[in-house]
Write a protein that binds this DNA or RNA. Structure first.
Lengths: 212, 212
DNA sequence: ATTTAAAACTGAACACCGTTTATTAATTTT
DNA sequence: AAAATTAATAAACGGTGTTCAGTTTTAAAT
């Protein structure tokens, strides 16, 4: 009777087991240190077995990608409470940076690595729904700010892109070890965080001045 | 007599030959499609030979990294002619975006990939001189802008970081195929360029407003 | 000119990687 | 109990970066 159902459950369980192991290895060793073989070993199955549940490695990473977006959305959840759009915008940036610095590998997967995007492009149903949704949240917030006199005369979409570009650029540089110039010190994570915070504070100060 | 000198010349020539082949393959096939074996084949030597001239693959990429900075500096060369710092700043951004979109693989190597930075970290003499220098150019330009009434009251270094973060973020998103939301269209390079230009125009408009 | 020392180069191997296929083992259906 | 279906795997394929014991080429010394 319920044998078919059980099999489906088993299938999903196995998928999940694979993903969990992948996620764990991913956090421990970073993106390009994970191999199908290491995942297979972790779940105590042969490497070939994984191919019964996933088309290829990219599909696994795409699944992790979606999972990562779940984490990001969760981090953004509390912000919906903030009624004032400009305050919300500022807190969004803070939360975004916080997310990126505490989950650098995940951020890398979500916004820097091209593999998940490339896999997406092969999916026929080619669209980055998670990305679209997240960007729309930003868009609405910016629109709210404009209704309160910020950024007037500037296109909402372009302004949102400016903000996203800045925040992403800051996080990307921070994560990828490309901030070393700013002489204060080198390679010390504490210091990099400090630079990122200072930079973000300055950006906020800029935005403040754009109120008419 | 001059045999030692000739040998040294030969050694450098070989290094250069390897680098040239690497650079060519790099432009043709992209970063992670280059293998030492393909480089070896291109120069018609055995893979093992390469290890007589480079410690490992990362050292090759670090050399390409430096070479890429040479290209970037060259692209920035004409800008020194522009006396007005704010005009120069705006053209710098334009040139930077131009460079990134026409040489995406090089940009990727210079500012996104972590491998060259990681190799650098193992170099004892650990410092990113090329990066430092380029950032200093930006810093001086921002300082010039401030002397003309722009961004007053904002820290020069932080302001420079804001600008670099924005431009880098824009380029990184453009290159890495993460711009697809902005609904106008999908995956069309023309459109991505357009979005980048619009975003940059908006950023410039923002900066314009920050004159006291 | 011949031997010797050194430098340049390479074939073959090692330990990995993602992926495919033929085969075996387990389970469900008949 | 037999047949059919499903699940799992061992083994192989073609690829990767890297190492090292040898060979070949070159220069120096005799």
């Amino acid at each position: 009777m319920g044998v078919k159902e059980r099999k489906e459950r088993d299938k999903l369980e196995m998928r999940d087991k694979i993903l969990q192991s992948a996620h764990k290895l991913f956090l421990e060793k970073g993106f390009d240190q994970i191999s199908l073989r290491s995942i297979a070993e972790a779940i105590e199955y042969s490497p070939a077995t994984i191919y019964l549940y996933f088309k290829d490695k990219n599909e696994i990473f795409h699944a992790l990608h979606q999972q990562g977006f779940g984490m990001l959305n969760q981090a953004f959840q509390p912000l919906t409470q903030i009624a004032n759009p400009f305050e919300r915008l500022k807190e969004m940036g803070k939360a975004y940076i916080q997310f990126a610095t505490t989950n650098p590998e995940v951020y890398d997967l979500l916004f820097i690595r091209t593999e998940p995007m490339e896999h997406l492009a092969t999916c026929l149903d080619d669209q980055w729904t998670e990305g679209d949704r997240a960007f729309d949240v930003l868009l609405q917030t910016v629109k709210g700010c404009q209704q309160q006199g910020y950024f007037v005369g500037l296109d909402t979409q372009n302004m949102s892109m400016v903000i996203w570009s800045f925040i992403h650029g800051l996080c990307a540089l921070g994560i990828s070890k490309h901030i070393s110039h700013v002489k204060e010190a080198r390679d010390n994570q504490m210091v990099i965080d400090e630079i990122m915070n200072n930079t973000y504070d300055t950006f906020k100060a800029m935005l403040e001045r754009l109120k008419s």
